[in-house]
């Protein structure tokens, strides 16, 4: 099984989390133990069960195509770290325009 340090580094990268060498070491062991525990599920006999993505017995929940009021722009931008001209402002994403 064994989660490697590379796996932790990769997952941390996907989540945009920086880690020190010591943290990497720490979480590698920890996550490995967690997964091992979860893998106990593998011993269960599930041959008679349908694969399921939702635990509730509910389906086909729709809403009608009706417009409802949106938020005022002041509310929308209230928690924005930075803004300009009613737009959210973020660090530049593409290097060239």
């Amino acid at each position: 099984m064994a989660i490697t340090k590379d796996t932790i580094k990769y997952v941390a990268g996907l989540a945009r989390i920086g880690m020190t060498g010591k943290e990497l070491e720490h979480f590698t062991g920890q996550l490995d133990r967690i997964l091992e525990y979860v893998h106990e599920l593998k011993d269960l006999n599930v041959s008679g069960l349908e694969p399921t993505s939702h635990v509730m017995e509910m389906k086909n929940v729709y809403r009608a195509d009706r417009v409802r009021p949106s938020l005022p722009v002041s509310e929308v931008l209230k928690n924005a770290p930075d803004k300009a001209n009613n737009l959210f402002k973020v660090k530049k994403i593409i290097e060239k325009i």
Binding site: R63, D65, R66, V67, R68, P69, S70, L71, V73, V76, L77, N85, N86, L87, F88
Partner: peptide, 23 residues
């Protein structure tokens, strides 16, 4: 459609920025 796919905000094109948004 008149409203967005998962909420009731309008789909009107060309409205001022961020005026057709909700939680």
């Amino acid at each position: 459609t008149k409203s967005k796919v998962f909420c009731g905000c309008s789909t009107n094109f060309g409205s001022p920025p961020n005026t057709q948004t909700c939680p």
